[in-house]
């Protein structure tokens, strides 16, 4: 049960990574990040069965971080959208020197 769950979380995490790298739509990007975080949560819960209750407590913290991150991220996307009329990441290259 434990190892299988860990394998599953690894797979889900991989999927999240693929999504982040491949997709250009900002919203989808965020969803993939959420998926990755959940994969981590799964790993935590699975391990809590072996290492005690702390695992589950950490899940809480992960969740709060995920929520905060989603909120701020979406706010950024909205402000960018208001400015650049698109969420396609190709046009956000302000970082480029």
């Amino acid at each position: 049960m434990l190892t299988r769950s860990l394998v599953l979380s690894a797979i889900l995490f991989g999927l999240g990574v693929a999504g982040v790298v491949v997709r250009r739509n900002a919203i989808i990007l965020f969803m993939c990040i959420e998926l990755m975080l959940n994969a981590v949560n799964l790993a935590f819960v699975a391990l809590s069965r072996a290492a005690g209750i702390e695992g589950q407590i950490f899940v809480f913290f992960v969740m709060t971080v995920a929520a905060a991150e989603a909120a701020v991220g979406l706010a950024i996307i909205i402000s960018i959208f208001r400015h650049a009329e698109t969420v396609d990441m190709k046009n956000f290259n302000l970082l480029r020197w």
Binding site: V20, V21, V22, R24, L29, M89, K90, F92, N93, L94, L95, R96, W97
Partner: peptide
């Protein structure tokens, strides 16, 4: 400089 494409994905 070519590495800094400005695209978020590449950084990810």
């Amino acid at each position: 400089s070519r590495l800094q494409t400005g695209q978020l994905n590449t950084y990810a």
